[in-house]
Design a protein around this nucleic acid. Structure first.
Length: 322
DNA sequence: CATCAGGGCCCTG
DNA sequence: CAGGGCCCTGAT
C-alpha cells in the first residue's frame, strides 16, 4: 500500500552554468537506495519536507548556455507557495545548483588525468539527495561491512519505518522521521538485524529528535567549525565526517582521510599501482588540485564508475565487493 | 566446521 | 595512541 501523490506543481530551476544534469543526479559509485531513481535526463526521489512526504521529479531542459531543470513537486494535497519556495531552496542547496564551477573547470581542464574527466563531466555537482539525518543513517549502515549487507540493513529500515509513495507512475520509499526510530527503541533495531549499529542509529535518531543535532544550525556554522561539530555526533568518525563535509556541506577540499577501499582505487587512478600509501595520495591531490582536491577526486571517481558501467574494468570489478 | 574481513567507530589501557 | 570488540554474512 502506497501513498498516492496526485497533486503536482511545475517550477523551472536555473542552475549556474556549466551544469551537468546526469552527473549531478546519478552518482555511479554510490550504492542504490530505493528512495530515488535516475534515467538519462530524468530523476525522481521522495522528499520528506516540512512534515510532509513529497515526490520530486526533475528533468533536463534549457540549453548548454542557459541550463534549466524542470522540477515537478508531487504532493497529497495542494501546497502553499511558501512550502514550494522552501522545497526549491532545499533542492538548490542539496544539489549545489548555485555553485559556480567555472574556476574549477577552466583552471584544471589541462590536468593530465583529471582533464579527461572534466571534459566528460564539466558542471557535475557534488550533491546529496539526503538530509543530514538521512545521510547519517545511510553512513552508519555502510560502516565496516559489505555493500550487500548494507543494502539488507537499509531495506529492513525502510520496510519497518519508511513509507511507500507513488507518484508519476513510480513507487519509491520515503525516509522515516528520526522520531520513528527513536521511539522504536534499540532492541527493535536489533531484531531487524542491525547488530551493534542499532545503538548508533538509535542514539543519532534521539539526537535529532531532541534537537541537539540540527542541520540548519550546522549549515550556518563557519566551515572550519563544522568538522568538529559533526565529529561530536555518536557514530561519526574520520571516514564518515569526510563524506559528510563533502557531500552534504560541499567542502570541495575535504580530502584529508582515505579509507582503505578508496585508497586502492586512487592508487590505480593516480599512480597506476595497486597500493600507494594514503598520505602520498592525499599529498599528491593537494599538490595538484589545491582547494578543489575533493571535487577533483570526485570527478575522477564518478568518471571511473561510469566507464566501468559501460565496459567492465577488471581491477575495479575485483574491488567492488557485493 | 572454524575463522576472518568487510567502504569504522567507540572505548579502554 | 594502539588495539580489542562489535552484529551479521559470505568467502575461504
Amino acid at each position: 500500500m502506497a501513498i498516492n501523490l496526485t497533486h503536482s506543481e511545475i517550477i523551472t530551476l536555473r542552475p549556474a552554468q556549466p551544469f551537468h544534469f546526469d552527473g549531478t543526479f546519478r552518482k555511479s559509485s554510490h550504492f542504490p537506495v530505493p528512495f530515488r531513481h535516475h534515467e538519462p535526463g530524468k530523476y525522481w526521489q521522495t522528499l520528506t519536507w516540512d512534515g510532509e512526504v513529497l515526490g520530486i521529479r526533475m528533468t533536463t531542459g534549457g540549453t548548454g548556455e542557459n541550463p534549466e531543470i524542470e522540477l515537478t513537486v508531487y504532493s497529497g494535497h495542494r501546497l502553499p507557495e511558501s512550502v514550494l519556495d522552501g522545497v526549491v531552496a532545499e533542492l538548490t542547496a542539496r544539489f549545489d545548483l548555485d555553485a559556480d564551477l567555472r574556476p574549477f573547470v577552466d583552471g584544471l581542464a589541462g590536468e593530465p588525468v583529471l582533464g579527461a574527466a572534466i571534459g566528460r563531466w564539466a558542471g557535475m555537482r557534488v550533491s546529496s539527495s539526503y538530509s543530514l539525518y538521512e545521510f547519517l543513517a545511510v553512513a552508519v549502515v555502510l560502516q565496516n561491512t559489505t555493500v550487500r549487507r548494507s543494502a539488507q540493513m537499509l531495506a529492513a529500515l525502510f520496510e519497518e519505518f519508511g513509507t511507500r509513495v507513488a507518484f508519476d507512475g513510480r513507487e519509491l520509499f520515503a525516509f522515516w522521521r528520526p522520531g520513528a526510530v527513536a521511539g522504536a527503541g534499540e532492541q527493535r533495531l536489533r531484531e531487524l538485524k542491525l547488530g551493534y549499529r542499532a545503538k548508533t542509529l538509535h542514539r543519532i535518531a534521539e539526537a535529532f529528535e531532541a534537537g541537539t543535532v540540527d542541520e540548519t544550525a550546522i549549515r550556518a556554522l563557519p566551515p572550519s567549525e563544522r568538522r568538529r561539530r559533526l565529529l561530536q555526533i555518536y557514530g561519526v568518525g574520520p571516514a564518515s565526517v569526510s563524506y559528510l563535509l563533502f557531500e552534504v556541506f560541499h567542502h570541495y577540499d575535504a580530502f584529508d582521510t582515505l579509507p582503505p577501499w578508496e585508497q586502492k582505487i586512487y592508487s590505480r587512478l593516480l599512480f597506476d599501482e595497486e597500493r600507494v600509501p594514503a598520505e602520498k595520495i592525499l599529498a599528491e591531490a593537494a599538490h595538484r588540485w589545491g582547494e578543489w582536491r575533493m571535487l577533483a577526486a570526485h570527478y575522477l571517481f564518478e568518471d571511473l564508475f561510469w566507464r566501468h558501467a559501460r565496459e567492465e574494468i577488471p581491477w575495479l570489478r575485483a574491488l567492488i565487493r557485493l
